[in-house]
Simulated assay, not measured.
Amino acid sequence: MTIKVGVNGYGVIGKRVADAVRAMPDMDLLGVADVATDWRVRTAAGLGFGVFAATPEADTAMREVGVPVSGTLTDLLDQVDVVVDTTPKRVAAGNLEAYRAAGVKAVFQGGESHATTGHSFVAQANYETAVGRDTTRVVSCNTTSIVRVLGALQQAGLLARARGVLIRRATDPGESHHGGIMNTVVPEASIPSHQGPDARTVLPDLDVVTMAAKAAHTQSHNHFWTLQLTRPASREEVLDALRAAPRIAFIRMSDGLTALNTTVELMRDLGRPRGDMWEVAVWEDVLSVAGDEAYLTYQVYNEAIVVPETIDAIRALTGTVTDGAASIATTDEILGVRREFLPERVEAMPA
């Protein structure tokens, strides 16, 4: 079965999801919907996407500026099996009734509340519980990283509890001209910050507390974790648990990857589309274990990390693939997800 997919919202996440859907052998992208008439929508049309107007007002505005309009959002919903809603925060929840009325399954993003769908999704943790559902919510970029990393350690029986500090980017790079945080750091007003409780919508037994602050940069997020283990363990045991999980890749200070921007530059050098990083990048040579405590730091590329999860969520809702590991393997192979970014080190030859 080829899954017919529509994307509602052609922004930071939507355009990446659209590209990923089009790359999947078992999916057919039937179009993208939006309300904008600017360069973003015109780019979508130029790339060969069918462009649909999300509202009657948008339909009029698009036609007035010469955007080739394939129809309305209703027309798109009449053609698809699944819609991925990547519209702005709190807009998506208002679209739920339209999706239900059309009999279309819907994947939402982490800006919406867990209550909107009653189910939150990270493929490696709870794929099977989404199979056949009408809706799910792919959790936010930071929450996705928490579930991937802490979930891997929990699955290995190593994690008792986790306490983390998140240094968040101020805004998306493409929005930085609209204003943002300059020359300061803005702590979130409550502890725990929302990411910890959100992770428990996927892993209910996870003992996690997060604190967060926004900093004056736009290139991804940075997490710092103090982990209480279930028992004294070696550093290699912790690393092995992370190696066993999908979508976690190791980077090293010793390779010159010493800051967020260096990893972003590496993704560009690797030829990643838009310089995207779908993996959680864990600094291997920073990770430290002392008895039953572990300390680690990692990088979250907020613009792309949820894309593979969204692809898996599409398969889960439609039930075309019921095994999570199989869907993850297909998605990761097509996208080019890695466990290591750099070639294996070669031992120096004797002189």
Rank of each mutant, 00 (worst) to 15 (best):
M1P: 12
M1C: 08
V5C: 03
G6E: 00
V7Q: 03
G11I: 02
V17K: 05
M27F: 07
M27A: 08
M27T: 05
M27I: 07
D34S: 15
A36G: 14
A36R: 14
T37H: 06
A45D: 04
L47T: 07
A61I: 03
G71F: 07
T72D: 07
L73N: 05
Q79W: 05
T86A: 13
E97I: 04
R100L: 00
E112W: 03
V131F: 12
D134Y: 01
S140Y: 00
S140V: 01
T143G: 06
L150M: 08
A152D: 01
L153D: 00
L159A: 03
R161L: 06
A162T: 03
A162I: 01
R168E: 12
T171F: 05
G174Y: 02
E175S: 13
V186W: 10
A189I: 10
I191G: 07
S193Y: 10
H194K: 13
A199D: 02
L203V: 08
D205K: 11
V208M: 07
T210D: 09
M211H: 12
A213V: 11
A213S: 15
H223R: 05
L242V: 05
A249P: 04
G256W: 14
T263W: 06
L270M: 11
L270S: 11
R274M: 13
A281M: 12
G291S: 05
D292G: 03
Y295A: 13
Y298W: 14
Y301T: 11
E309V: 00
T318G: 01
A326G: 10
T331W: 00
I334S: 07
A348N: 08
